[in-house]
């Protein structure tokens, strides 16, 4: 059964279309990845799902309930983990969780055990009574997750939960997602990190400029990426002028430069590399690092849009 169904969703801010005729569905029990660069419309899509914003057009159905028509009943099924931690800094983690539990309709009896459960899941039990303003950034993000799952929602929506966290918290967050999946929670996981999405998600939707570019299981999407590989070349400095030269090389499908990192999509790295090297040498550029990526969602995105997911 579909836990979430989105049909022909449109959302504009002034002239800018943040979400453009978006349709997809998420099955019960799966971890569904929403992958796209900054500004792709991921957060907007999530606030249309959670009922925080209303679409200009289209329909969202959660667990068979139309969010536009019966929003309170739909909201009860959803847990939200916003991109930025949404907690009261003056209160303790425990006080925060009690409050979010109450708002989500937990009874007094359920509340105590739900709070302890959520604290355990995110590993904050021993810091639970400190003021949140004293917690580290990663811990705040973990509390943010705990607040989203306090009422054991059927559908958990996570918006880039690992942006800017320390490696330890990041590891903890990824483990939390796996644990929640094992308990049967349906999860929408938004990210612009390919590795996370590849590691966690059963199915992935790739979006850019508010549009769905591709959707499928990881093998399906990698199949679309075809035999393409990605050459990631970091230079000390990268003048814009070499881009057209690189793009014109044989075996190079596409190339982009972001922050001195040259990303090249190629059907054959072994044949493309010597030519790329020669160009670098001819332009007297200094090489810092070189990496060959196997076909990945990253190379698929590059193939679909001619851009990288990285900022």
């Amino acid at each position: 059964m579909a836990m979430l169904e989105i049909n022909n969703l449109d959302k504009s801010f002034g002239k800018r279309k943040a979400v453009d005729d978006l349709s997809f569905s998420v099955r019960e029990g799966e971890v569904f990845g929403l992958l796209g660069p900054n500004g792709a419309g991921k957060s907007t899509t999530l606030s249309l799902i959670s009922g925080l914003q209303r679409p200009n057009k289209g329909r969202v159905t959660v667990g068979g309930i139309n969010v536009g028509e019966d929003s309170l009943r739909a909201k009860a099924l959803i847990g939200v983990v916003p991109q930025e931690p949404a907690i009261y800094p003056q209160l303790s983690a425990r006080a925060n969780l009690r409050f979010w539990g109450e708002l989500n309709g937990l009874s007094k009896k359920e509340l105590a055990s739900a709070v302890e459960r959520a604290l355990t899941i995110v590993g904050l039990t021993d810091r639970a009574d400190e003021r949140c303003s004293k917690l580290s950034g990663g811990m705040k993000r973990r509390l943010n997750i705990a607040a989203g799952l306090i009422h054991s929602p059927k559908l958990l929506i996570m918006d880039e939960p690992t942006v800017g966290v320390d490696p330890q918290s990041r590891h903890h967050i990824l483990e939390t997602v796996k644990e929640l999946k094992a308990q049967g929670t349906t999860i929408i996981y938004t990210s612009h990190y390919v590795e996370e999405v590849e590691q966690l998600c059963d199915r992935v939707a790739i979006m850019d400029h508010g549009k769905l570019l591709s959707i499928g299981t990881l093998p399906e999407l990698l199949g679309q990426a075809g035999e393409y590989q990605e050459l990631i070349i970091t230079l000390r400095t990268t003048p814009e002028s070499i881009l057209p030269v690189i793009q014109a090389l044989p075996w190079v499908q596409n190339a982009v430069v972001t922050n001195d990192v040259l990303a090249i999509l190629t059907a054959n790295a072994e044949l493309a590399l010597p030519q790329v090297f020669q160009t670098i040498v001819e332009n007297e550029l200094e090489l810092a690092e070189i990496k060959i990526n196997k076909p990945s969602l990253e190379s698929l995105f590059l193939k679909l849009t001619g851009r990288t997911l990285r900022d």
Partner: peptide, 14 residues
């Protein structure tokens, strides 16, 4: 500004 307002509106509270 700190997002708790949005979280309140995401909860099943009229």
């Amino acid at each position: 500004q700190n997002g708790t307002w949005q979280r309140i509106l995401c909860s099943p509270t009229s």
